[in-house]
Computed example of a mutant assay.
Amino acid sequence: MAIIRVRKSNLMMKKKKKSISLKEISKASFETALSSHNVTLEDDNNGCGIHSSSSWVKSLLLGRGAYGSVYLGRSKTLHTCERAIKTAEISHASSLMHEARILIRLQSPFIVRCYGEEIAREDCSTQYNLILEYCSGKTIADLIEDNNGELFESDAKVFARDVLSGLTYLHDNNIVHCDIKPDNLLLSPTDQRFRSTGYLTKIGDFGLSMEKGSLEYGNGYGHKRGTTRYAAPELMGHGFVDFGADVWAFGCTVLEMLSGVSVWGEYGDLAFDDWVNLIGHSDRMPHVPAWLSTEALDFLSRCLERDINKRWSTHELKNHPFVLL
């Protein structure tokens, strides 16, 4: 049974964002996951699982979602080392384990780096911790909100160029992210001599990602995942997941950076079936302000193309005048 999660948008037009998630981990696959981490669920005298303590001290709560919480963590041995610690009780950590399997092998400056994982005893519970790069600049969604939806087009171009580089890397490695949106694009502060915005944009949150060619992916059909507001027509209408779904969601994200309001915001907060009808089975398109530059309008039209066969790939988009230096 699919699980629908709801998140609040950080944008000017605050709407609930429904996401379609991974299935809950089965008992057999859960036991397999534990075995792969050399974990047994024996009890000590206090009824707690016998595991080593965490090598990280969690401090500031950075966020909380359907699959766990994210904390700022500091190493117990290297006190100056800070990481983002994604954590969940072990029996509810299937999504984080899936994210770890994807992230652990990815190496790109435009992808949040994974430093490993651990299972540890914390406060008489068994926690799964995913150790990630800490991006202290928050997210694109935060930046849009902090600037009252008024990002300069020149800055949006830089952010878009970074995300395209990350998506191209993912697609070249047969990974479909499946949940591109402003909340999942993290900002890492950098020297303005190298980035005019002062940030390097990194793609994060791989809990819903899929690998083409995997048993889970199959022929690409029958999947319902991602955040409804950013979901592509073929995904909402037919449950089809491919690289084009990321391109559509990326186009929605660039549109929000340029316009400052939620994509499809004029329709308010719809029930799931209404989203399916609007995005998957109608001929309607997200509202694109006419005052945007000619280059921006053309770029968005290449991303927000209902026909997946006509939608541009990330390689084609990287050569569009809108994102060229």
Rank of each mutant, 00 (worst) to 15 (best):
Asn38Ile: 02
Ile175Glu: 04
Asp183Lys: 08
Leu304Asn: 06
Glu24Ala: 14
Arg7Ser: 12
Ser21Ile: 01
Thr126Asp: 15
Thr87Cys: 06
Ser35Leu: 08
Ile308Glu: 06
Trp248Pro: 05
Phe250Gly: 00
Glu150Tyr: 08
Asp155Ser: 15
Ile180Gly: 02
Ser55Met: 07
Cys303Pro: 01
Phe243Glu: 06
Asn174His: 07
Glu216Asn: 02
Gly68Ser: 10
Met257Asn: 04
Leu96Gly: 08
Glu42Thr: 15
Trp291Ala: 06
His238Phe: 11
Ser19Cys: 13
Asn46Met: 03
Lys27Cys: 12
Pro109Met: 02
Asp283Phe: 10
Gly166Val: 03
His238Cys: 09
Leu208Pro: 00
Leu317Ser: 10
Phe250Asp: 01
Ala245His: 00
Val323Met: 09
Leu297Cys: 10
Ser26Met: 15
Ser75Gly: 09
Arg311Met: 14
Ser165Ala: 13
Ile20Thr: 09
Asn174Ser: 13
Gly149Leu: 02
Arg83Pro: 05
Trp275His: 10
Ser214Thr: 10
Gly207Lys: 07
Ala100Ser: 12
Val158Tyr: 03
Gly251Met: 01
Lys15Arg: 14
Val163Gly: 02
Leu258Val: 14
Gly73His: 07
Thr77Pro: 00
Ser188Asn: 15
Cys114Ile: 01
Trp56Lys: 04
Ser165Arg: 15
Ala271Lys: 11
Glu216Ser: 13
Lys318Tyr: 05
His177Trp: 08
Tyr134Phe: 13
Lys14Ile: 15
Leu164Glu: 02
Ile50Ala: 05
Asn10Pro: 00
Lys224Gly: 04
Thr197Glu: 07
Leu317Ala: 11
Tyr169Gln: 09
Ile279Gln: 03
Asn147Phe: 04
Leu186Met: 14
Ile308Val: 12
